[in-house]
């Protein structure tokens, strides 16, 4: 039950987390997943992450480039587009306002 609830929370914000994870520079699938896990968001499987990356790329919020490496298989590197930066700023603020409201209501419920 707790896992389901957490998965649902993530569903609503994973695209913003991915955009935020790329705000400081380009990255690739596994690294993005690792960064989010290290931030305490739990292990995000590739099966969840890649459809989100695809959708963001299709929407023009991310640009991607496949680079072949000398050793081992190549990787697809993602970076934020200008539109991606703008969406992150706008939608990130909305999410933070929402989170503040949730916090306020929950805190009141706990102490009330």
């Amino acid at each position: 039950m707790a896992t389901d609830r957490r998965a649902n929370w993530l569903k609503g914000v994973l695209d913003l987390l991915v955009l935020a994870g790329l705000a400081e520079g380009e990255s690739y699938g596994y690294e993005i997943s690792k960064t989010l896990a290290e931030a305490g968001l739990g292990q995000i499987k590739g099966g969840t992450l890649y459809p989100v990356l695809n959708r963001l790329e299709e929407a023009g919020l991310l640009a991607a480039e496949f680079r072949v490496t000398e050793r081992g298989p190549g990787r697809r590197y993602y970076r934020l587009t200008d539109q991606g930066h703008e969406t992150l700023r706008e939608q990130g603020e909305l999410w933070l306002a929402f989170a503040d409201s949730v916090r306020a209501v929950l805190t009141k419920g706990k102490t009330g």
Binding site: Y50, V68, G72, P73
Partner: peptide
């Protein structure tokens, strides 16, 4: 290729 790199690393 990208997904193969992912599981190679994970």
């Amino acid at each position: 290729g990208d997904l193969a790199a992912y599981v190679a690393e994970s």
